[in-house]
């Protein structure tokens, strides 16, 4: 599996650390209430198709990357730097 890092180009998956759903970019407001935080920390869509997820290019440019990857085929549909990713996107 290779991941197209927006800074470094196509790199081996060994260089990356996986952090899970890109939902984590959308932390609720501090006063959003308990239910919102339970949802944020624990509940996941877990789709069998495209998943929006966070990868950290640990052994490269050390940028956080948002990737769209198909969980059934491992095929990447696109990557972008997390700092450019639109907050609030699903």
């Amino acid at each position: 599996m290779r991941i197209n890092c927006p800074n470094c180009g196509d790199r081996d998956v060994r260089e990356f650390h996986y952090r899970g759903s890109a939902k984590l970019l959308n932390r609720p407001a501090p006063d959003a209430g308990e239910a919102a935080f339970v949802d944020y920390v624990y509940l996941r869509e877990n789709p069998a198709g495209l998943n929006r997820e966070l990868w950290f290019h640990e052994m490269g440019c050390r940028s956080w990357i948002v990737a769209q990857r198909n969980m059934s085929t491992h095929e990447f549909a696109g990557t972008e730097l997390a700092r450019n990713a639109k907050r609030g996107a699903k």
């Binding site: 899970g20 759903s21 949802d39 624990y42 509940l43 996941r44 869509e45 877990n46 789709p47 069998a48």
Partner: peptide
């Protein structure tokens, strides 16, 4: 996750 989704549930599972 997929069967639970049919019941409108989301689980703390990946």
């Amino acid at each position: 996750g997929q069967v639970a989704e049919m019941a409108g549930l989301r689980l703390p599972i990946e």
